[in-house]
């Protein structure tokens, strides 16, 4: 097997100067487990970037380092920098709450709160004291529209979120994230529990969102990465093996490991 180091990782676009997210020499440990090793990754604004790799390669940890959700894990340690709009979020005086407001996150399993549809979307704006009354109603409506859910729920906003189907619940979670006016949306295998139809809707939505937001999606579904993303990163055993234009990565991967992974020889 070819020796991998970050040096021979294939980057198509290391020339980007105006990266929205710029990960530099990022290392993460959980206890003694070195999960991410010297990751360098520049993510462009208003694109969809897919992070793929076999289970346990560190892809979820990587996106969770972008909104500092790893901080919540006992015994986690981070070394390196993550710049968002040129500001290192691992600076000591970073306001993590404001950071997480700016970065929406959608999880593997739809996880609406056990509240009404309306309350789910209004939760974020409420805790950040962004709006109340009519203004809050407007935010809820706008977010649900952006998440392509409004037409399906406008007559039952005060029903429980659990009355929705799985795909609808996931779009509700997207609306909830959009309500706090984020700039970046992180998605951690958002379709893994959905059927093909619901998946297709989320994927189409995701493409549309990338006109306004910077989207980073973790997926173990290669075809999904190929369908939705502009750029694809391949992570293997905590290292970034390949990163580049999605068309290029899927048609002509530069690394032998990527080739083996995407053609299904391992993983």
């Amino acid at each position: 097997m070819k020796q991998i180091s970050t040096k021979n990782c294939t980057h198509d676009d290391l020339m980007v100067n105006d990266a929205k997210i710029d990960v530099r020499k990022l290392n993460v440990w959980f206890g003694d487990n070195h999960v991410l090793k010297d990751i360098n990754l520049k993510i462009r604004e208003k694109t969809v970037t897919a992070i793929m790799g076999p289970s346990g390669c560190g892809k979820t940890t990587l996106i969770r380092s972008i909104n500092r959700m790893n901080d919540l894990i006992n015994g986690s340690r981070t070394l390196g920098e993550v710049y968002i709009d040129g500001y290192n979020i691992y600076e000591r005086n970073t306001n993590v709450y404001e950071l997480r407001r700016k970065i929406g996150m959608v999880f593997q399993k739809p996880n609406p709160f056990p509240k009404s549809i309306y309350e789910n979307v209004a939760f974020g704006p409420k805790i950040h004291k962004m709006a109340r009354g009519k203004e809050l109603d407007d935010i809820v409506e706008k977010s649900l529209k952006e998440a392509a859910l409004w037409d399906e729920v406008k007559d039952r906003l005060h029903n429980s979120a659990f009355s929705l189907s799985g795909g609808q619940q996931q779009r509700l979670c997207i609306a909830r994230a959009l309500a706090v006016k984020p700039e970046i949306i992180l998605m951690d295998e958002p379709c893994s529990s959905l059927d093909p139809t619901a998946t297709a809707r989320i994927e189409a939505l995701l493409r549309r969102l990338s006109e306004k937001y910077t989207v980073v999606i973790v997926t173990h579904n290669l075809q999904q990465a190929a369908r939705v993303s502009d750029f694809t990163a391949f992570l293997y055993m905590g290292k970034l093996v390949e990163y580049g234009d999605t068309k290029r990565v899927f048609e002509n991967p530069q690394s032998e490991l990527t080739e083996k992974y995407i053609t299904g020889e391992f993983g």
Binding site: L222, Q223, A226, F250, E251, N252, P253, T258, E259, I262, T263
Partner: peptide
Amino acid sequence: FQPVASDLR
């Protein structure tokens, strides 16, 4: 099989 990479080529 939705082939990619060398398979697709």
